[in-house]
């Protein structure tokens, strides 16, 4: 075990008995900051929720418009394809379309 050097006792006592304390009403200042911090956090969560709601509503509206557009434009000539494919605007997965897409990428 390492040697534990004991600090000078008188020096310790002198330092301990003469250290500073905070200015009066320290606890009141802390409590005021605690309340402010709690209020700030609440406001931040509220703002985040409001922003999310705005984005979510806009995204939902955009999705609805896209679905309506897909259905209206592909209704006549894709009556044979899957409903989900039509709603999402996905081309029918046939051998010919696959070759066509692979050819496009290459």
């Amino acid at each position: 075990m390492k040697h534990e050097e004991m600090p000078n006792k008188r020096l310790c006592e002198f330092l301990k008995s003469n250290v500073d304390s905070f200015d009066p009403y320290f606890s009141t200042r802390v409590m005021a900051r605690v309340r402010t911090a709690a209020a700030d956090q609440e406001a931040w969560i509220t703002n985040l929720w409001k922003t999310f709601r705005r984005v979510a509503v806009t995204a939902a509206l955009a999705a609805c418009i896209l679905v309506a557009h897909n259905i209206s434009t592909q209704w006549q000539y894709r009556s044979d394809s899957n409903a989900m494919e039509m709603i999402l605007g996905i081309p029918p997965a046939t051998f010919a379309t696959t070759i066509q897409y692979v050819g496009l990428w290459l």
């Binding site: 301990k16 250290v19 500073d20 304390s21 905070f22 200015d23 320290f26 606890s27 200042r29 802390v30 409590m31 900051r33």
Partner: peptide, 30 residues
């Protein structure tokens, strides 16, 4: 508040010992 009052002297000794007196020490204490 009771916790703050119980430990404020101890934290003051550390903070003022390290940073000296003044607003910095009070801010760090808070």
């Amino acid at each position: 508040r009771q916790i703050v009052e119980r430990y404020s002297n101890r934290i003051a000794a550390i903070v003022t010992g390290m940073l000296g007196r003044g607003q910095d020490a009070d801010d760090v204490g808070q």
